[in-house]
Amino acid sequence: MQENRNSMLIVIGASAGGMAALKEFVAQIPKHFPAPIFIVNHMGAHTTGDALVKVLNESGSLTCVQAHDKQAFKNGHIYLAPSDQHMLIVKGKILVTKGARENRSRPAIDPLFRSAAVAYGNRVIGIILTGYLDDGTSGMMAIKRCGGVCIAQDPEEASYPDMSQSVIANVGADYCLPIAEMGALLSDLVRRQLPENEQPPEDIVIEAKIAQRVLSDLPSVEALGEQVPYNCPDCGGVLWKVAEEELLRYRCHTGHAFTSSALLAQQTEKLEETLWVALRMFEERQNLLVTMSKIESKKSASSISLRAKDSQVHIDRIRAMLKATDTDDHGA
């Protein structure tokens, strides 16, 4: 990328409903757009992203490619984070890493946004589109703290408004508008005259380095917050609380990071897995006891039958908890 004080970068985060939103977005961007565009769209680990690349190439006049490690980027191109890897930005190039998941996702939006904020400061324009929960909110805070611009899709038109609403509530969007109006806005913003960048805050620099796997030690995480009596649901390690104004986040020293809502969702998922294991074990125990009662003496069989009935009580309780968890999930 040609370096000058006014070179701009566009970073975009999307999740559920992202393909349709991104298709509408890229259709507005002119062919010789004077900035590169970087996109994280949440996707499963076993997908390729090829379908989205094809759709974006067919929908607009810019070239869209999946990013690869140490790739130099150019204006007028779109770079999509590959499946199951984070996409980060440093001066003039892209890093693709297999770092720890953030907010249950890889690729995640926050690592891209933070890395861009550290590398390019006030020349970064962040955009949050449709999606569940709040990935992108912390990263957008980093962009704002480094002097960049925050744009949120109007929640009223978003297929899934959670991410936009979280950014608006916790960061305060500079612009909140429908996708149809973003192209004209960006064409104006990328031509602004900007002051010199200031040094990025140290906590943002630390988190950006953690995402690169440069830092992953206790002193680094302890510099960001205080230890709390919770464990990381992904690796079992101790968590540290990172307070960002009204947004509560948690990190473990191996690199996993969660907002409070993402942590709760992950804990709920792990709890459900544990309950299913417990249900299987109690049912196996009950089946074994029933089998034993059929071949034991009458005295022993009576005792074994009582133990089998006790197991049924636990089975019924676990099934009730699983039904309650299922109801809660659908209510969310």
Rank of each mutant, 00 (worst) to 15 (best):
N4R: 07
R5Y: 03
M8P: 02
M8E: 06
M8A: 14
V11S: 07
I12L: 08
G17K: 10
L22V: 05
K23R: 15
F25T: 07
A27C: 02
Q28L: 10
I29E: 04
P36K: 05
P36W: 00
I37A: 05
I37P: 12
H42I: 12
M43A: 07
A45H: 10
T47E: 09
T48K: 02
D50N: 15
A51D: 13
L62P: 12
C64P: 04
H68E: 12
D69M: 03
N75Q: 13
L80Q: 02
V90D: 11
K98H: 12
G99P: 01
N103E: 06
S105N: 06
P107A: 11
I109H: 02
F113Q: 08
R114Q: 11
R123G: 14
V124G: 04
G126V: 06
I127G: 01
T130A: 09
G131S: 09
G136A: 07
T137H: 00
S138R: 02
S138T: 14
S138M: 12
M140T: 06
A142F: 04
I143V: 13
C146F: 02
C146I: 09
G147L: 09
G147I: 09
I151N: 05
Q153C: 06
A158F: 04
Y160N: 11
M163Y: 08
N170V: 00
C176I: 12
A180R: 09
A184M: 11
A184E: 15
L185A: 11
S187H: 05
E198Y: 00
Q199P: 00
E202V: 12
I204D: 05
I206P: 11
A208M: 07
A211R: 04
A211T: 10
Q212V: 03
L215V: 10
D217F: 01
L218V: 13
S220E: 10
A223R: 13
A223G: 09
G225L: 03
E226V: 05
Q227K: 12
Y230A: 09
C232R: 04
C235R: 05
G237E: 11
K241H: 14
V242D: 00
Y250T: 10
C252M: 07
A257W: 00
A257N: 04
A262S: 15
Q267W: 01
E269S: 06
L271G: 09
L271R: 05
E284G: 15
L289C: 13
T291P: 01
T291R: 14
K294W: 05
K299D: 14
S303E: 14
R307I: 12
R319E: 14
A324K: 10
D329L: 14
H330K: 15
